[in-house]
Design a protein around this nucleic acid. Sequence first.
RNA 1: GGGCCCGUAGCUCAGCCAGGACAGAGCGCUGGCCUCCUAAGCCAGUGGUCGGGGGUUCAAAUCCCCCCGGGCCCGCCA
Length: 654
Amino acid sequence: MSWLDPYTKAFDAIVDAISEVIGEDRRRVSYLLAVPSRREYGDLSFPAIRYVKSSGLSAEEIAVRVREILEERGINYVGVSVLKGYLNFTLDVGAIAEKLAGMAGEKILEVPRTGEPLKIVVEHTSANPIHPLHMGHARNTCLGDTLSRMLMARGHNVNRRFYVDDVGKQVAVAALGVKVLGIDPMEEAVKHGLKPDHLVGWIYAATHTIIDIKRLKKAAGEAERDEDKRRIMGEIEDLMSVLADLESKDPAGYFNRLLEGLSRIDDPEKTLSEMMIRYEKGLEPERTLIRGVATTVLEGFKQTLARLDVEFDAWDWESSLVWEGLVERVLEEARRSPYFIYYKGAEALDLPRFIRERVKPDPELRRHFRLPRGFEIPPLILRRSDGTTLYTTRDIAYSIYKFEVTGADKVYNVVGAEQRLSQLQVRLALAAIGYTSIAINMVHYDYELVTLPRMKMSSRRGRIVVLDDILETLRTLAEEEVEKRNPGAPRDWVRGVAEKIAVGALRFRMVQTSPQKPLLFDIEKALDLAENSGPYLQYTYARASSILRKLGANAQLQPPRRDACESPKRRELILQALRTPRVAAKAADDLAPEDLAVHLLKLADLFNSWYQEDPVIREPDVGARSCKTLIVYLVREALSLGLGLLGVPVLERM
RNA sequence: GGGCCCGUAGCUCAGCCAGGACAGAGCGCUGGCCUCCUAAGCCAGUGGUCGGGGGUUCAAAUCCCCCCGGGCCCGCCA
């Protein structure tokens, strides 16, 4: 049992008491026991009116029994009253403050550990290794990493994995470019002082564009109708301007070599598909070439992720799944499934029949899959008539792998909402093959995309908002501000602080809105560091730190004068800070980082407002100063706890 | 054509899943606050047919139905 602060302890005791008295589930009671809309109603409120009928007790009677139970359990700092059918609880903050005094320097706030620790895999980011991470990935990365942090804090055993999608056309395109140039991409990046993923990203975009133009030119020559021809010529024109743009960004004199090299290849599409087939078989030289290209890009990813303080426990290569026979194993198992069919000559699973016969009649399965009402899908092809496998097939194999290699109870896949259908298909397929528990315990953690005003990203045209660039812009801006506020501060220090502010701004922004909503990332506004932002919280933390620093020896916590903690703002601040562990625990259980973000903003608002009118250091009364010092301690610790979970770095000064 | 998600103040969003006590923040705009703990802050003011219409309920932003608007998805692509 971990240490519980008096607030969490009281909350739990109240939940227990109510649930015993009215005979309702603890979870439900815990949900309904909320902070009321008006302060006069108390610190916590419960709508007992709902349970008057079912329990046969009046609200007053419920209150009396709850109070008895609380007293029995030694929770003597909670008052209960009844108003309009609500039980209103008021905490004796003075008594709580007394309990907390003397704990200076110790950890007071801690996320309560779950009673059911699980082994959880969080798969996130998993960007294709062809170009740098962009803003689209940023939300995925931040959500995935924050989720991981929260689940770990809750006591789960979390395993973070990155799926390297190297079997496919995109990486082959980049590899073809590298091959034509005859370079070792990693060495070249070092030689030219470029970030490795940026180098490959350019090669990918240029190669792709050149091949596309070539293909379109051929199509234009063959087009019979004039309007088709005109449309194609228009597309070619667009691509030519894209190409000109790429030429202007040529990182190391590659452009002409690439153009010439590719022009010597008769049918690039055919070359690519041969490369892909050979790679799937693990043949050289493709094996070394493609792995090399992907590894180069991953190296760049790792640099960016390190800036964001994001780590992975494992990198899973799609190609390895193929080479080690896991994909083949899935196919064999599928063939033994009663739902295996040949569909137009390809090996497939009859998902429509599976849904009809197994999912719909089974309430539990129906609940887990949450099938839309008029849901209809065609059979799922696992292997093409030409014998090659599909992405989905490999994804099924990977799903099994994730559970088997880790012994996971649960897997969260952080994947964009646009892939809902395909994620559902994978889970249905798993169940149809017989992996029912995997299908049930695999969760698609979906989020809407990041939209950029006045901008449409296109990765294959090299027109992406690169995450590194955003971070650089944010850092530069923060640097100016830090310098202005700290004249004469050492260069390195300024840089370090600015970097943390940039990371804080980005990470907070990416998780503060609920994942179901598209996130509008306005670069102009993101650069404005005010608003409900990460830097605002960092600033508040730094402020609290500064006060404690200046208090010096006086920062030792003395028992506060009880009544000194009773003023509305002071007691509200103490309570809001103490609520943080519970909020964090619930946010973790609900997989809702935005709830924690909102809570921290509210805490910071209260603190800043209080700070302005109630000075700490100049407070002459020792008992009152102790209470204020306690508040600063608690707020600083609550922010530290919360920001740590969100991956927003804390700063002692800024 | 079918399905999923979203629609709350000029803008960005909380609240909706598990209905309850006058609908909340921030930004913006207007005005004020640094001989005093960091002004990336604070205070005051401004601003809402909760997309529209029905229904259920003692009670609806929240649940149900219909409609409107926006995004996404429905490949032997990845």
